[in-house]
Design a protein around this nucleic acid. Structure first.
Lengths: 366, 366
DNA sequence: CGCTCGAGGTAACGCGCGTTAGTAACTAGG
DNA sequence: CCTAGTTACTAACGCGCGTTACCTCGAGCG
């Protein structure tokens, strides 16, 4: 045979924990070939379903049976090495456990699975008390590149501008729920404006014309977009947003509570008090619920509430369940993978920045 | 000083042809060797820091500089192929996006990162309406084995017995937050009993002696353990659990609301009505809050509430914030990886089933 | 009868790396 | 001068696979 020294491992096995190797270890294509009485090439051809290779039906059948019998399992690493393609994408995201990142990952994961690709998930920063830990983020990208990922996804937990490690540029990269300050990389973001619009349209449709807004930090993209959409919807109905009715608060339940108190206590019922509250996120809506209930008011009879984000644990468990606008995390994740697939295939992408719709989720608070 | 790569040298500045092929593509150890005027073996020895290999300090230095200059990055796949170890663990878990699974993944991820290992995450079943999709689960394990993971983690979203795909046995496997019916595989589960105990001890310590319990489905391990712990704590205080005060409900906010109503309306204040509620999960506590508030009672002044699970979005945002017992998901994930590391290293593991403490999280509802 | 052609394969190279078994030069000891 | 023992390396094999170039054999054809 070609291997003039098949016993090269003369030192013998067992130098390191070889004892515990699973029985399966070592069923290779060569084993299959020998057992089936054909060449390794033939096995490879059959398994990769080559068109122009001529293998008789009978041989093919025999090979496939042998594969089954021996329990052969291809070695993805070896295949990647030989074929120069890994079928892996990497995704790096701050704090893997953040409630939102998860849904992005899920969307991406599922889409990748459909495309028969693997998603390597790397934590970026650990969110030390000191703030983002960019050293770790760079290391994560580095590690992913060592795995020879064919593309990178970079996801943020809230919509904002980010700074992407520069080694990421060595491979196609798509940003999800964020965009890079330089505007170089393709990105996928929620259509905040349309989301704000649909929320307020819903309130208008329910007959509300005086709407209070519990705002986020006014500088972040989410607040800017949602508020803009809100204004648009009002404008179309011939209304204007009363600045008196817009209160910013800390993006928590407590912040929402305080903001709601401020709005509610500013006016008497019927004398300018809003009949609906648009809370720019669900956590604040949660606090607003308390403020409203404390005042003996009923949702939605006395005051309607609409949220944003669709944080399941909140929106679906508040009483009454919260009508809210959902952030399309899974869709963005899936679209990210699709975009990456186009890029790695060398196809042009449709748009530099893709916006994904934020659907309204009707529940019972309007 | 660690960031000593400002030059990105070699290719020269502004020479980025990033548009087509990543410039990096194809810098191999052989390239480094040639550029440094040494053999590939020498490079390998230096990079893997071999003890017994003798390379002069000067040569070593030159090699390392060349590595930097060329931007060499090891190819993890090739390394795995040659060294027969991948440094990968696989984790399969139902519904990656489930709020709990995430924390397990995070714990495992972080620990794996510390151990310089990679975690390949595979979705198991898609939770179709038809129930668990075991076909997909098997496929996931299969895919992971193709990647030659050295070990498998199998995580469930809630503590229960599971059925593990049999191909998983080809490689060391550790179960997290679940256990296999056959009792063959090592597992890591929360110590529900101790958790129930600590919760009730806290209530007793606050002076409550008549405690209502909002129970889960009485058959699941969580309910069994937590209730047992509850009884133990009461017994130590010379008390007994009044069966009248134990009400099972659906594991949702609505279920908790109804159960709380039942308990609260059964007695008059002071005439047997409990002064504290032990809710076996936070979602039900959320419903209980509403029931209590509806009756004009204050938490914790009139009625103390303690939960279980520490679902951040609920417990930390309820008003008042909920005192609860945390499920140690991250710890279990980390411990899973550690256990796996022992197993793959051939070391014996300490115990077949490891129980992890559920710490009490003091907030303001007791 | 000589030639081509296609069907049904196989030998052999290389992917990038870890690793073992050398080799060459230069002491140190006898 | 001869051997043994360093130090500083290098040649070459094999990991499991994709892939290209070849090879053999029988049928068809002018």
């Amino acid at each position: 045979m070609a291997n003039s020294t098949p016993k090269a491992a003369g030192t013998g096995p067992g130098h390191r924990l070889a004892s515990t190797v699973p029985a399966h270890r070592g069923v290779t294509m060569a084993d299959v070939a020998k057992a089936a009485g054909v060449s390794r090439t033939a096995v490879s051809f059959v398994l990769s379903n080559r068109e122009n290779a001529s293998i008789s039906e009978e041989t093919k059948h025999r090979i496939l049976e042998t594969v089954q019998a021996l329990g052969y399992r291809p070695n993805a690493g070896a295949r990647a090495l030989a074929s120069q393609r890994s079928d892996w994408y990497g995704i790096v995201t701050e704090i893997v456990t953040a409630p939102f990142a998860v849904d992005i990952i899920k969307g991406a994961q599922d889409q990748a699975w459909l495309d028969r690709r693997f998603l390597l998930i790397a934590p970026s920063d650990q969110a030390d008390a000191t703030g983002p830990n960019h050293g770790m983020e760079d290391a994560a990208v580095e590690k992913l590149l060592e795995q020879r990922v064919e593309g990178l996804l970079y996801a943020a937990t809230y919509h904002r501008a980010v700074h992407v490690p520069k080694s990421a540029s060595e491979v196609p990269t798509v940003l999800i729920n964020c965009f890079d300050a330089d505007g170089k990389l393709p990105s996928i973001v929620p259509d905040e404006r349309a989301g704000g619009r649909v929320a307020v349209e819903r309130l208008l449709q329910a007959g509300h014309s005086r709407i209070g807004v519990i705002n986020l930090d006014p500088d972040i993209p989410a607040a800017v977009g949602r508020l803009e959409g809100c204004r648009e919807a009002l404008a179309e109905a011939g209304l204007e947003l009363d600045p008196e009715l817009v209160v910013s608060g800390h993006a928590t339940a407590d912040g929402g509570y305080e903001a709601a108190c401020e709005i509610l206590d500013k006016y008497q019922a019927g004398a300018g008090r809003p009949t609906a509250l648009f809370c720019l996120n669900d956590r604040m809506a949660m606090g607003a619920y308390d403020a409203i209930k404390e005042r003996g008011l009923a949702i939605p009879q006395d005051i309607a509430v609409i949220g944003f984000d669709n944080q399941e644990l909140i929106a679906a468990y508040l009483r009454p369940k919260l009508t809210t606008v959902a952030l399309p995390f899974e869709e963005m994740g899936a679209l990210g993978v699709q975009t990456l697939a186009s890029l790695t295939a060398g196809q042009p992408i449709t748009a530099h920045q893709q916006m994904v719709d934020c659907p309204l989720l009707e529940r019972y608070s309007v």
